[in-house]
Simulated scan of single mutants.
Amino acid sequence: MQLSVFTVATPDLQPEELAAEAASAGLQGIEWRYARTSDEARRQAPSYWGNNLATIPVGASDEELARYGQAASSAGLRSISVTPYLRCGDLDAAEDVLAAARKLGASMIRLGVHGYDRTRPFGELYEEQRRYLAEAAALCRRYGVKGLVETHHGTIAPSASAAARLLEGLDPDTVGVLLDPGNMVHEGFENYRMGMELLGPYLAHVHMKNAAWTSSEREDGSVKWTSGWTGMRRGVVDWAQVAADLAAVGYAGWVGVEDFSGEHRSPEMLRQFAAYMRELLQEGAAR
């Protein structure tokens, strides 16, 4: 397995700084965040989803894209993904991202997935999602870049089995699943190995972060549970088990850090991630 970083998790580092720190930590790849940054956000302190300094702007020119590609290659890293925030059904936006990914030599993008908030029935969302993914898969094939569905709370793909159902019958060489156990703490938990086995050839990428549940008592005496981000070693996800399960199913792809805990500053977070993953992989090899 190879290690990468999704730049959403390192908002305070410019592309060149990020690449240098990632290489120093022992990572091999970068997943570039692709999003618009408002003028208001640019005036604020760096943040994950606001003023993120290592974000490719939507509609970036070839010259702008070259900066990100050069940042990675100068540090001996690969640009493995361009990761946007697409809406289900927006094929024009998906094609723009695919074009940017191909120019960077990236092999993956993230596709849009419908949210679920009880305002529309699942059946309608599912049918729309299936049509979009079939059309997006054709685009992905044309560009030679794989489109990923991420397991994510608040969407119609919170679990491995739900994501697999969306992709059923599509070519796993063109579309796949980004398995995110941290997201599945909030919603969508399944036995990790069962989910990986169920995904089979659709298991295309993995994100590493962690989350946990905390409780508070309401005035009526009932208990309210709330989920939130934690450090990589401190949450509900048993990453030793996840790593062992990935090895058991023969996964040899990328594991990318997407830590939102704020436990460490970005350079130290990258070092902690690389050290932890090396520890887990060595333990797995010794079993």
Results as ranks from 00 to 15, higher is better:
V8T: 12
Q14K: 13
A23Q: 13
S24D: 14
A25E: 01
A35F: 12
T37K: 12
T37S: 07
D39H: 02
Q44G: 06
G50R: 10
N51C: 02
N52G: 10
L53N: 02
L53C: 00
I56T: 02
A71C: 10
A72I: 07
A72Y: 04
S73A: 15
V82D: 04
L86P: 06
L86K: 07
A93E: 13
A94Q: 12
E95T: 07
A99H: 11
K103P: 01
L104H: 07
L104Y: 10
S107K: 15
M108K: 15
R118A: 13
P121D: 15
L125V: 08
E127Y: 03
Q129I: 01
R131V: 11
Y132N: 10
A137G: 04
A138N: 04
K146N: 05
E150W: 08
H152Q: 14
T155C: 08
I156V: 12
A157D: 02
P158N: 11
S161Y: 03
A162G: 08
A162F: 00
E168Y: 08
D171E: 12
V175T: 05
G176K: 05
V177D: 09
L179Q: 00
D180K: 05
G182N: 03
M184I: 01
H186T: 13
M196H: 03
Y202W: 14
L203Q: 09
G221Y: 09
V223H: 01
T226D: 14
T226R: 14
S227G: 15
R233T: 14
W239I: 04
A240P: 00
V242L: 09
A243Q: 08
A244T: 01
A244G: 14
D245T: 07
A247N: 11
A247V: 14
V249C: 03
Y251G: 05
V257K: 03
V257E: 14
G262D: 06
E268L: 14
L270A: 04
R271V: 02
Q272E: 14
Q272R: 13
R278H: 15
R278V: 04
L280A: 07
R287D: 11
